[in-house]
Design a protein around this nucleic acid. Sequence first.
DNA 1: CGATTTGCGCAACTAATATTTACTAATTTT
DNA 2: AAAATTAGTAAATATTAGTTGCGCAAATCG
Lengths: 122, 122
Amino acid sequence: MMTEFAKQLKKYRTDGEITQDDLASKLFVTRQAISKWEFDESTPDLNNLVKLTEIFNVSLDSLVFGLTDQTKVDDEEFVMDPQTHTYVRRYGKMNFWDYMSKNWWVVLILGAVLIDVAMFIH
Amino acid sequence: MMTEFAKQLKKYRTDGEITQDDLASKLFVTRQAISKWEFDESTPDLNNLVKLTEIFNVSLDSLVFGLTDQTKVDDEEFVMDPQTHTYVRRYGKMNFWDYMSKNWWVVLILGAVLIDVAMFIH
DNA sequence: CGATTTGCGCAACTAATATTTACTAATTTT
DNA sequence: AAAATTAGTAAATATTAGTTGCGCAAATCG
């Protein structure tokens, strides 16, 4: 149940290529404390838990629960902003002009070619 | 800093019209423990913290950090990309030069085509 | 009203456990 | 192959979450 936190902590730490030692010094605890957290032999207090979210720049929920079905659904349109700890809309839901601005070079080239062809016909 | 949890706990409890006593019995702790949490004289361990989220049916983040206006942050310029775990600028918020710096080669093609057209006209 | 219940805060104690210290081992580096 | 990194584990310690016991308002009721 709480073992998910252990996994997530190890994942975020190793993904960030940070040693237990470095992480420990950031939290002002010993490296062994980190080891215990990752082996689910103990759990950090809320204070250190919050510090971890700041270091890894993730939400408390993803740190403690991992990516659950709930958040996966939310990821369709919303994602958790670890800075404000709120859900924000993804840019994935783009409107017409958003989409056009992303691919306007296609339009430009096509337009240029069309002008080219029109000139030729003329 | 951590005082936000105390506020949120009291808010969720009173909003749900639950007494400290009732909440305590659900968590198998004494009512005084709840009192301490609400006065920030102590903080529950992660286990009880998770239980609280289940009882109130809220996310860990909203319990610990509180809820902020979600529609407000929809206008944020940056969002967290869950794939790369990095911040990305919303396409809708990109300005001309942001886009150009990303697609400078488009300018080259466009210029070439325009020269082509100009040559043809001439 | 006076009495009783409900809901809660506070101080002192204890019980739990998070964290440290000390020892060991496996990799990696030079 | 010695030295330096990185990390897991047992025993001791320190911290603090949670309990016990007391008091005190504000409702509730006979």
